[in-house]
Amino acid sequence: MGYQNQYESWRNDPEGFWAGEARRLHWQTAPEKIYKRNESGDRWYVDGVMNTCFNCVDRHVEAGHGARVAFIHDSPMTGTTSHISYADLLNRVNWVAAIMQDKGVEKGDRVIIYMPMIAETAIAALACARLGAIHSIVFGGFAAAELATRLDDAKPRLILAASCGLEPGRIVDYKPLLDGAIESAAHKPEACLIWQRDESPAPLIADRDYEWQALEGEARKAKRQIACEPVMATDPLYILYTSGTTGVPKGVVRDNGGHLVALSWAMENIYNIAPGEVFWSASDFGWVVGHSFILYGPLAIGATSVIYEGKPIGTPDAGAFWRVISEHGVKALFTAPTAFRAIKKEDPQGKLVENYDIRAFKTLYLAGERVDPDTINWAEAALGVPVID
């Protein structure tokens, strides 16, 4: 269905249009009431019952696509690349959900995820969704005082954190920041799971901190399986906090059903991505773009998503993005104009593109801030693809 037909269909019958789009998902109870307006705003699929993790992981495996790659983790910071299939992802999400359940996490509980751009960040979020818990991802390395504010508001039962993050030329130890946040916050989590990175393992506090790898290994050995918790479409999936630059950070709540229907629709109709194709959102899990287009959007349709732990320049040079596109067969890239301005400044003639085979690449999407015409023109000339602002 072309744009004009979709637009006319939506304009003539908005509820009917989105009722049809709901069929993109698996529902335990299919919604009959499509839309309702109440004091909290627009509510979609109000009587529908589903689970976001099942829709993003389990159903693809059950449909016979377990061998398909779900995530490509590309880290110039460690010089490594790894692939996680949908079947492997399902196993790991099960095991991490089992750990969380053992630590008392139940449907409706909040969980803080304080981690860098590694696959385990996505696994943690999906494990929360599997249990019906509500995750709140906070940028790894965020200041202790800012993290404490979010602890006091979300009141998490559990925190999942990495021992450190990696930046060009330096290691950022997360654990001292986490310890400082917990010490200053009024609310204290019951436990912390720490993903120990080889670059800087962290000391653990007895009876509060637990090594993630060890507990996941135990769950794997026991072949733990955790069923997806059915939730209402209007139940919260995650809380994402505003920056707090204009006051106390505000927690924005995203629900399950309407959120995933909209993302599924967007992946096909805006980004032109089909199941099995490679999509790269060069963002961070800490942004809403990272939630939507690194994690939930691509997985909702069974596509492959790139998790990139690096920079547009300096890791090692202004050809970093073209290397990723070339090596992984990226069809579409979604990033901020700032990234392209930085690349353009380092390589004004776009010469580094010539070092890579980017024939699989079809479209560049820029968003998040205003993009100047010079940058659009430079990108179109250098890449030879449409640039969508």
Results as ranks from 00 to 15, higher is better:
I307T: 12
A181S: 02
W10F: 15
D88H: 05
G66V: 06
L90R: 10
Y86L: 11
P312D: 03
R11E: 13
I270A: 15
R370S: 05
H73T: 13
E39N: 11
P348T: 05
C53D: 06
P189I: 06
T338V: 00
D88S: 09
K36N: 07
E21N: 13
V105C: 09
D74Q: 08
E183F: 04
A303D: 08
S75L: 11
S264H: 00
Q349V: 04
R170N: 06
M1H: 14
G64F: 09
I123Y: 03
Y3T: 14
A30W: 09
A87R: 10
G108W: 00
E277I: 09
G302V: 12
T149I: 03
P316E: 02
R68G: 13
A233K: 00
P348Y: 01
T315W: 01
N256K: 03
I84L: 15
G319H: 07
L383C: 13
E21C: 13
L260Y: 01
L166D: 12
R208T: 15
R359W: 10
K344S: 06
W378R: 04
V353M: 03
L366N: 03
L364W: 02
M77V: 08
C53N: 05
P373V: 08
R254F: 09
L260P: 01
I72L: 14
G329W: 14
T246W: 09
W378M: 04
D179A: 12
Q196H: 11
E354M: 00
H60R: 12
L240R: 09
Q101S: 14
C53I: 03
A143N: 00
D173K: 12
W18E: 13
A129Q: 03
L215A: 09
L158W: 07
V96I: 13
I112L: 14
G108Y: 00
K36F: 08
V49P: 00
E268G: 15
